[in-house]
Design a protein around this nucleic acid. Structure first.
Lengths: 192, 192
DNA sequence: GAAATGATATATCGACTTGATATATTATAA
DNA sequence: TTATAATATATCAAGTCGATATATCATTTC
């Protein structure tokens, strides 16, 4: 999903600054299936502004003079044209999910890791999934439309399934003994 | 994980051409948690070659003269220096998983989609997870070291949990009625 | 047997993303 | 009062993605 559509999606949920949009991808309801950094968000907002799909409604329209919030803070709102563009952007056939897990890559090569390192990687990863599951479950589901409730539940199911599998199979992974030498046993061995 | 380490990882499993490395990320044992395209692989291989971490052992060393495979096919192999570099690269604390799911984004905004489109997106997504689970389960687990068995099982647990959740909650999502108008009911309504 | 199609194979390009960094204000804690 | 952390915008180098160009080899269709 392109950054412009992601930004429009966050603004559907409420007016926000670029900084607040970033936070939505870190801790908000998209956090477990989408991401965007400042380097994507700020250029996207500028283009959306040029195209009239968003408007700046800040700083604090009522407080025209005197004290405002952050000097340069800009609060963006989606326009009618933006809502129409957003609806069009959702009428696509989505591509496949993209997943990149360095922790899985390390565990795949468990026999190349020092046992203590492997245990650390495993325990951090498991703790992370337990945290995430607890966090998503802590969010209030009151008055949330079906789509949001569904993806929220999908996130919980995903986090809990991973955590359960890991707890059930910890011993299997931890029995790994280094197949390749952790230190080169004899300095001068066969070369490539 | 940087592309160079990913390429080294594939070459640990066996000598390969750039094209074959790409296929490993599409259909191989990494497919469900890592990815890399030609635009990453070929520059990475060139750097690895410059640094002596891989070597070209092709085309077909025995068939020095006469018929060979593809004229320009280069088969890469990891070197001892490459194995040492790979081990070092694995001694990191991995960052968090990155997931991007456009399908989840669409389902999150279910009330912005036409019901038929929503159903299509949902059914494609579910079929995909069922396929993936069946595929990973079809792989032969004989003689596979614990790390690879563990990540393989993690993939199955993940795919099956998603598929089960989706089947159990299809009705909940499909009861969604467009909250925002699918077509602007009255042309001239309130503007932004 | 010719033509078309698809798989194999290397490589690059523009547009975009990532992660880090620079800058500055405001709020909180020591 | 000073230091630290959070808020806030913005940019940059390095790297990635998806598409494309080019060409060979294998298989199927007419």
């Amino acid at each position: 999903m392109d950054s412009r559509t992601l930004c429009l999606g966050t603004l559907i949920l409420g007016d926000a600054s670029g900084y607040e949009i970033r936070k939505m991808f870190e801790e908000g309801p998209f956090a477990h299936f989408q991401d965007a950094g400042y380097g994507s968000i700020y250029p996207a907002l500028r283009k959306l502004l040029d195209e009239g799909l968003v408007a700046i409604i800040a700083p604090a329209p009522e407080a025209t003079e005197g004290e405002r919030g952050h000097p340069d803070k800009k609060i963006y709102a989606i326009t009618d044209a933006g809502r129409a563009a957003f609806r069009e952007a959702l009428a696509i056939t989505p591509g496949r999910d993209k997943i990149r897990s360095d922790a899985c890559f390390l565990m795949f090569f468990a026999d190349w890791l020092e046992p203590a390192h492997l245990a650390r990687v495993f325990d951090d990863y498991l703790a992370h999934f337990k945290d995430r599951a607890a966090f998503v479950k802590s969010l209030d589901p009151e008055g949330v439309p079906p789509g949001r409730l569904f993806t929220r539940g999908l996130g919980v199911a995903f986090y809990e399934a991973i955590a359960a599998y890991m707890e059930a199979n910890r011993d299997m992974l931890m029995q790994t003994r280094p197949a390749a030498p952790v230190e080169p046993a004899r300095p001068a061995d066969a070369a490539e």
